[in-house]
Amino acid sequence: MKICIISFDYWNYDHHIVKKLQEKGIDASHINMGAYKYKNFGERASNAISKIFLNKNIKHVKRQEYVVNTLKKLGPQDQILVLNPHTLDYQTIKEIKSYTPYLISYLYDNLERFPVEDRLKLFDKIYSFEDKDVKKYGFEKITNYNYLSEQPIQAEEIENDLFYITSYDKRRIKLLRKLTVRLSALEVRSKIIVVGKQVWKEKLRNFILRPVGSALIEFRKKPINNETILEEYKKSKVIIDLMREGQAGLSFRVFEAMALGKKIITDNQSIQTYDFFKPENFLIVNDDLSNIENQFFTLSYQRIPTSLYQKYSLNHWVDHIFGISSTFESKNMISSY
């Protein structure tokens, strides 16, 4: 069986899918649009001029050409999975479809943020993590997955009560301002990092106003690699997970916390509807954050049953998305000897 994954792997999550498929004896490939780079300075300069004067992003076009050219080299596929197709136009997806009898998409952002309704009819199957999109468009619901471990990872030495890293987002920043005031009052050992090109605005605001709790936040322009983030998670008791505007689906933080045995503070009300929810492990904040108390940081994380843990594993996710049966895996294991 040949399966190809096409994505813009922003946070280096998608390659785990390919690796898991290969472990199962499947000929799996990954076309990562994020891997496309400018060939030279001239191409970079040409694209900058094009965006300014023609409102056209040549790099966007080149990335799609890269996808199609790579797929030509790989040849026909039994299945192709496109993760978040907003980075591809209609014609490109149509050409991708010509290489497989079964084209799948998984939407891990809602259609309000990335409207791609005009392209969805090209897919044979669409999965989504967002309940409202599932209900409105008839997609199949599936969450993100635990890519870290088939068994919970043992906790390491704790340095912080709380850790949070987020990209710059107006809604999150607004809530974060209130959160740091509350954390300061509780004297919670915290490490909070905000990343993005717009962080200078918040740095300037904090310099001028010097609000309570502002010293808890570190601002960075460049992103931090996922391995470093995971190390910070391991050294903390609690992870914060704040939603984007209009989002209700579960982020990867929930599953990283599950693997590492970490508790979560979140504003995602929908999390209490999931079968792994335990009030000892999740604190859903109220509007003024007054329900954040020291006790949440002192009580231990409560492990979930093994069957539930494995339900949200990457192994289970891959089997479900691609319809891989245990019979297929057994045959491939035998043929490998």
Rank of each mutant, 00 (worst) to 15 (best):
residue 286 N to L: 04
residue 170 K to R: 13
residue 244 R to K: 15
residue 106 Y to S: 08
residue 243 M to Q: 15
residue 69 N to L: 06
residue 307 S to I: 09
residue 135 K to V: 04
residue 47 N to R: 14
residue 36 Y to L: 12
residue 10 Y to P: 00
residue 100 T to I: 06
residue 128 S to I: 09
residue 45 A to G: 06
residue 182 R to G: 08
residue 262 K to D: 10
residue 20 K to C: 10
residue 181 V to Y: 10
residue 106 Y to Q: 13
residue 250 L to K: 10
residue 52 I to S: 12
residue 53 F to N: 09
residue 140 E to Y: 05
residue 244 R to I: 12
residue 110 N to T: 09
residue 88 L to D: 02
residue 192 I to P: 01
residue 123 F to P: 02
residue 84 N to R: 15
residue 182 R to M: 13
residue 6 I to Q: 01
residue 65 E to M: 05
residue 70 T to K: 11
residue 281 N to W: 05
residue 75 G to H: 02
residue 36 Y to S: 01
residue 176 L to F: 05
residue 37 K to W: 10
residue 106 Y to R: 10
residue 335 S to E: 11
residue 290 S to E: 08
residue 268 N to F: 01
residue 73 K to L: 04
residue 111 L to R: 07
residue 110 N to D: 15
residue 104 I to E: 11
residue 278 K to G: 01
residue 300 S to A: 12
residue 226 N to T: 06
residue 190 S to A: 14
residue 214 S to G: 00
residue 139 F to A: 05
residue 148 L to H: 07
residue 37 K to Q: 15
residue 109 D to R: 09
residue 127 Y to V: 13
residue 94 K to E: 12
residue 244 R to T: 13
residue 279 P to R: 14
residue 120 L to A: 00
residue 125 K to H: 13
residue 307 S to P: 05
residue 337 Y to T: 10
residue 204 L to W: 11
residue 201 K to W: 05
residue 301 Y to L: 09
residue 31 I to K: 00
residue 27 D to H: 01
residue 107 L to I: 07
residue 158 I to K: 11
residue 27 D to K: 07
residue 113 R to A: 06
residue 156 E to H: 02
residue 91 Q to R: 06
residue 159 E to T: 12
residue 301 Y to D: 04
residue 104 I to Q: 10
residue 78 D to R: 08
residue 123 F to H: 09
residue 233 Y to H: 13
residue 7 S to H: 07
residue 153 I to D: 00
residue 273 T to A: 07
residue 248 A to M: 14
residue 166 T to P: 03
residue 4 C to N: 10
residue 230 L to I: 08
residue 248 A to T: 15
residue 78 D to N: 15
residue 43 E to M: 14
residue 137 Y to P: 04
residue 179 L to H: 06
residue 149 S to W: 05
residue 132 K to T: 11
residue 110 N to H: 14
residue 321 I to L: 11
residue 293 E to G: 06
residue 29 S to V: 03
residue 13 Y to S: 09
residue 284 I to R: 06
residue 267 D to W: 03
residue 14 D to N: 15
residue 199 V to K: 09
residue 106 Y to F: 15
residue 244 R to N: 15
residue 324 I to G: 01
residue 130 E to V: 10
residue 332 N to D: 02
residue 194 V to G: 02
residue 133 D to C: 05
residue 68 V to E: 07
residue 296 F to W: 07
residue 290 S to Q: 08
residue 19 K to M: 14
residue 260 L to T: 04
residue 35 A to F: 12
residue 15 H to A: 06
residue 221 K to T: 13
residue 210 R to V: 04
residue 113 R to L: 08
residue 74 L to H: 03
residue 212 V to Y: 03
residue 73 K to P: 01
residue 33 M to S: 00
residue 47 N to Y: 15
residue 297 F to N: 09
residue 240 I to P: 01
residue 272 Q to L: 03
residue 236 S to A: 09
residue 263 K to Y: 13
residue 112 E to W: 09
residue 270 S to W: 07
residue 28 A to D: 00
residue 87 T to E: 12
residue 15 H to Y: 08
residue 283 L to A: 03
residue 163 F to Y: 14
residue 155 A to C: 08
residue 207 F to M: 15
residue 123 F to G: 02
residue 25 G to S: 07
residue 120 L to F: 07
residue 101 P to W: 04
